[in-house]
Write a protein that binds this DNA or RNA. Structure first.
Lengths: 136, 136
DNA sequence: CTTTCTGTGTAATATTATCTAACATCTATT
DNA sequence: AATAGATGTTAGATAATATTACACAGAAAG
């Protein structure tokens, strides 16, 4: 069983995730609705979250607290998640650009730069994988 | 946050534990009823299991499959759990003896010896902490 | 300074998951 | 055959979650 698979096992109901992340159910569902997370579902359609999901929610929360909006968070997440090559990142960015006005894009870039500045030094580090510190 | 505390955090509802251990809800509740596990409860009285609980259930399952009964499992578990000094183990054993007929005690000892023989070599090793292999 | 949009709160209702308790069943022991 | 231990199964109650709709405050836009 691969390590990656373990962290992606659907384990937690939303109630536990609420306590783990200090987010409300409303927030968690809203983030899912906006494709920031894709938790698994039970046969009866109830959400089941993995370690990775909880980690991601913790990161989303940190970004929210820094003032990013959903679009900005989406960009930041997909910018670090796939760990793909530079060419692919560029391609994705170009595609995104088609659906955005210049003003929107500039705002996003400003937000992201601020985020990177904030996290480069100080309290903002070590967001991703924070849950790893709670369990082995 | 101590490592021990992390493994004792109440996280999983019984449905997840069923899948994780391949035990039925009936079995899990029965083992609780017989004091083999003490899962936490939500405010609404629903069970919440920790990593340690799941580990313990996996061990209980292995012992069940070896033919041990509840009393035998209880002995084996409390024999390795507290990790206490030799004198204390003896004391506990003596106390237990008071409530048992000789025949019962002999049967238990026979079972435990068989268990130790079975686990000393072969497939029965590494029962406790098995869950650690599924998650970090 | 209104208007609009975003993110979240809240309430209502429906459905799923779990709980307890009781009785049934099967196996091994007496 | 009778008994006890471990589990299956069912019924009814309660808890947890899902979805949807409406409300609302603050930010953004006009």
């Amino acid at each position: 069983m691969s390590d990656d698979l373990r962290r992606n096992m659907a384990l937690f109901p939303i109630g536990i995730v609420m306590k783990l992340t200090d987010l409300t159910a409303r927030q968690i569902r809203y983030y899912e609705q906006n494709d920031l997370i894709q938790p698994a579902r039970t046969e009866g359609k109830q959400r089941l979250f993995s370690f990775n999901d909880v980690d991601r929610l913790l990161e989303i929360k940190a970004l929210i607290e820094k003032g990013l909006n959903i679009a900005g968070i989406k960009q930041v997440l997909q910018m670090q998640e796939p760990a793909m090559e530079q060419t692919e990142i560029t391609t994705t960015s170009e595609e995104k650009r088609k659906d955005m006005s210049d003003k929107e894009l500039h705002q996003l870039l400003r937000q992201q730069i601020m985020y990177r500045d904030a996290t480069r030094h100080g309290e903002g580090a070590l967001i991703r994988g924070e849950l790893s510190r709670f369990f082995h």
